[in-house]
Amino acid sequence: MIIRRADEETEAGTLPSEELFAAMTKYNEELVKAGVMLDGAGLQPSAKGMKVRFSGGKRSVIDGPFAEAKELIAGYSVIEAGSLAEVVELVKKWPVEDGHGNATIEIRRVADIDEYDTATPEIVERERRMRAETGNA
């Protein structure tokens, strides 16, 4: 998973310029053409979001905004790759228009249910069905 960390601009709801949209679209098109892009989206500012806090069996809802921009995420994509190094090379080509040349991109590995030795065959099967239903095999 590739995570575009938030900054003051994204948290202010500043929309991408036509130039940035063009650059990001071109970048994403390359990933789609290479067959590695699985999903992606931009997130609206935390001011339009909320949190559900679970504490002592109770749930409470807190409206945004939250935290410092650098602790939040502004967007993500999910790509298929053979190694972390491969993803790093792809992310190094991230459009420099983003964040006016100053953006932080976090790369994280998506867990496979099979790597959990605590997952029973039933759990694995339920997960497989979920992925088939959501079209995310």
């Binding site: 989206a41 997130l43 979001g49 679970f54 807190i62």
Partner: peptide, 10 residues
């Protein structure tokens, strides 16, 4: 104590 963040997608 867990906090789950909810954000709207553009």
């Amino acid at each position: 104590e867990v906090e789950i963040e909810i954000r709207q997608v553009y």
